[in-house]
């Protein structure tokens, strides 16, 4: 960035200097740039399709934003996706549950896995990173053990509406994601629960002294994280028509990348849902736009990595100057 541009930005009003706004501007510039290279990029069809492909990561990124705002982290989300997917197939095939009940069961297992994380983190006071790195191994292992590495296939056609169908001209799961984005955004921005999360993340001890139900709030966010992972698993199974125990492997890093790119502080206390959404869209569309422009997958990964560092660098250095 040139010195002149930097000075101009420094003089800009406060809202322009918010991380999310800056990121949105970077996003817009990147989109227009990539769109100029390829006329198949900025089409409604392609953008809606990208929305379909990013839904699973997006669903998990919402509660992950909550978790990181409280100063925690959840590395087990990808493993919970695998476990819930396996449980969906297992309940449907082995327990012969009707499919809706099997879906509820998969969500329940996801929520339970998250609850266990939250319970041990709040009661035994195991740091979140340690707890979830251990349950990352445990839940993935359970998925393999329960499934005996077998896939479950042949779900009824109606189920595929969720992952492959359209409602009102948009991918079904994208609509679910949008609804949940609004819910999560309002919950974080406009409710006491949301404000409690910020308080916990900025200073947990102070939050406790302020009579906030710190442990309960944490228990809720980790449970939500598991629940969202379960929902992502159901959507993913519907999209790819099969369950596998290795589903969701590596999701944790994709989700965390979207959240921190969106300006949520890894140290807790700061961050927004809107930022996460921009981070999520940015990574997905950057990958897609580069691919359509003819950049190969390995080079795309390099660009994403560099973009992550550089955009956080720019945003934080501008913010610091403002302070």
């Amino acid at each position: 960035m040139s010195a002149a541009a930097e000075t101009a930005l420094l003089r800009a009003p406060w809202w322009l200097k918010r991380h999310e706004t800056l990121l949105a501007i970077i996003l817009a510039v990147a989109l227009v740039g990539l769109g100029a290279f390829n006329d198949r990029f900025l089409t409604l069809d392609n953008l809606l399709n990208q929305g379909r492909l990013m839904t699973e990561i997006g669903l998990i990124a919402l509660p992950m934003t909550f978790v990181i705002i409280t100063g925690g982290i959840d590395l087990s989300v990808g493993a919970i996706v695998g476990l819930s997917a396996v449980m969906l197939g297992y309940a449907w095939k082995t327990f012969a549950f009707p499919l809706p009940l099997a879906i509820v069961f998969a969500l329940f297992v996801g929520g339970l896995a998250g609850f266990v994380n939250g319970f041990v983190i709040t009661r035994v006071k195991v740091p979140p990173l340690i707890m979830t790195i251990a349950t990352l191994a445990l839940y993935r292992g359970l998925a393999e053990g329960v499934s005996q590495a077998h896939s479950v296939r042949g779900y009824p056609e109606a189920f595929y509406v969720l992952g492959q169908g359209d409602v009102l001209g948009a991918p079904t799961q994208l609509l679910i994601l949008i609804v949940l984005i609004v819910v999560a955004g309002v919950a974080l921005d406009r409710t006491t629960f949301g404000r409690a999360l910020y308080a916990i993340g900025s200073n947990e001890t102070a939050a406790r002294f302020s009579a906030l139900a710190v442990d309960r709030a944490k228990l809720v966010v980790y449970t939500l994280s598991g629940l969202a992972s379960g929902l992502a698993a159901v959507v993913l199974v519907s999209r790819v028509t099969t369950t596998r125990m290795d589903m969701g492997m590596g999701y944790e890093l994709d989700v965390i990348a979207a959240v921190v790119l969106g300006g949520t502080s890894i140290f807790g206390g700061a961050g927004t849902i809107w930022g996460t959404v921009i981070g999520l869209v940015m990574i997905q569309l950057l990958k897609n736009g580069l691919a359509l422009t003819g950049v190969k997958g390995d080079a795309t990964i390099v660009v994403i990595g560099a973009a992550l560092i550089v955009s956080v660098l720019i945003a934080s250095s501008l913010q610091r100057r403002r302070e």
Partner: peptide, 23 residues
Amino acid sequence: YLRIPAIVVTLGMLSILKGGLIS
């Protein structure tokens, strides 16, 4: 010195090294 959280820097570097090596 630039005060970027280590998780962000190293997550980005992970991508760069991984993709770069295959490239």
